[in-house]
């Protein structure tokens, strides 16, 4: 009975979303079947389209994993965007400092640098929360602005490509660039790293003792304290991990897609990562699925825009509605269950 209700509620969500899409498509005067066709053709119609889904999902999964670790421990990390930026800055800087390294050393070094930079960027609000009880929500949001603008300064000054008038760095040395996995598509090593990270996070959180303590701290700080877990240390630790994975997402975007540091390289991956973590219920496999889903939604609607003239903006409206419905689902279910019970009495 419960299962049936759950299944029905998800079917209902799909129906609502589909009708919403139909209404939106009709309201811009496009043809519904053609729009849907082009949506799915965009995702599954070609190898390139499908690879684009994976490319888009890569930063979402990595940053989403980071955010989910924070959420599990009670560190509400809204600052993945800033941490992504620091990962990007870190890999670029490392590449500038050690341009001649071979790929076998350069790529891991870049990833580690990104992890550390993103991690430290999150660790500051983490420490402020643990030590002084200052809200990490506010701090991580504010840190986004700081990180984004530090990058802006860097690409105009020390990291600027002197041979080019625009504010961007010169191309990364070859050793630091992620190899492509499926030429001629843009699918790069980052996607594999995201999958490895997914498994790593699972093992860390569910098989290891530090991960267990992180989860315990997230569920009940008081009991953690009474059992002897140094709660504050683990909050700081979780902020480091959380920012670290987001940092790797930044590395992937620079070393796998753009090959140089530039402003606005992330169209808000760090914010969408929060949605990814929420939809994935802070479970690493769920996060990966949610990341792929949202990436597919975006790729599909871009194709819809090209082929059927429907503005891609509707993908954001749809995404917002999906999140709203899924989060409201369980609350509404209990609400209606109680109503029903009252009627019976």
């Amino acid at each position: 009975m419960e299962r049936l209700k759950t299944a029905l509620s998800y079917i209902l969500i799909v129906v609502i979303i589909l009708s919403l899409a139909v209404v939106l498509i009709l309201s811009v005067g496009s043809d519904v079947p053609k729009s849907f066709m082009s949506f799915f053709r965009g995702i599954f119609g070609s190898l390139y389209g499908f690879s684009e889904v994976l490319v888009r999902a890569t930063p979402l999964i990595l940053a989403g994993l980071g955010v989910s670790i924070g959420f599990r421990t009670g560190f509400i990390n809204i600052g993945a965007e800033g941490q992504i930026y620091w990962g990007a800055i870190a890999v670029t800087t490392t590449a500038y400092l050690f341009p001649g390294l071979p790929a076998l050393i350069a790529i891991p070094l870049g990833i580690v640098a990104g992890f550390v930079a993103g991690g430290i960027w999150a660790l500051i609000p983490g420490y402020l929360k643990a030590r002084f009880g200052i809200s990490e929500v506010i701090n991580t949001i504010m840190f986004n602005y700081i990180a984004i603008n530090i990058l802006g300064i860097l690409v105009r000054t020390v990291l600027k490509d002197p041979e080019y008038p625009l504010p961007m760095s010169s191309k990364l040395p070859n050793g630091f660039i992620f190899p492509l996995l499926m030429y001629p598509t843009r699918l790069h090593l980052g996607f594999l790293i995201a999958l490895i990270a997914m498994v790593l996070v699972y093992v860390l959180m569910w098989k290891s003792s530090p991960g267990y303590k992180l989860r315990v701290v997230g569920l009940n700080q008081r009991a953690s304290l009474c059992s002897g877990i140094p709660v504050k240390k683990y909050i700081v630790f979780s902020s480091l991990l959380s920012g670290g994975f987001a940092g790797i997402a930044g590395v992937g975007e620079i070393a796998g897609i753009h090959y140089k540091l530039l402003e606005g390289f992330s169209p808000g991956f760090g914010y969408v990562a929060i949605i990814v973590a929420l939809l994935g219920k802070n479970n690493p496999f769920g996060v990966a699925a949610a990341g792929l889903g949202i990436a597919a939604l975006q790729v599909g609607s871009l194709s819809m825009q090209r082929q059927a003239g429907v503005p891609a903006s509707i993908s954001w409206i749809i995404m917002g509605s999906i999140v709203l419905l899924i989060l409201a689902r369980s609350t509404l279910l209990t609400f209606f269950a109680e109503k029903e019970k009252e009627k019976k009495v």
Partner: peptide
Amino acid sequence: NDALIMDMDMRE
């Protein structure tokens, strides 16, 4: 509040 993690299982 002090002794148990209500949302974890027995072994945890």
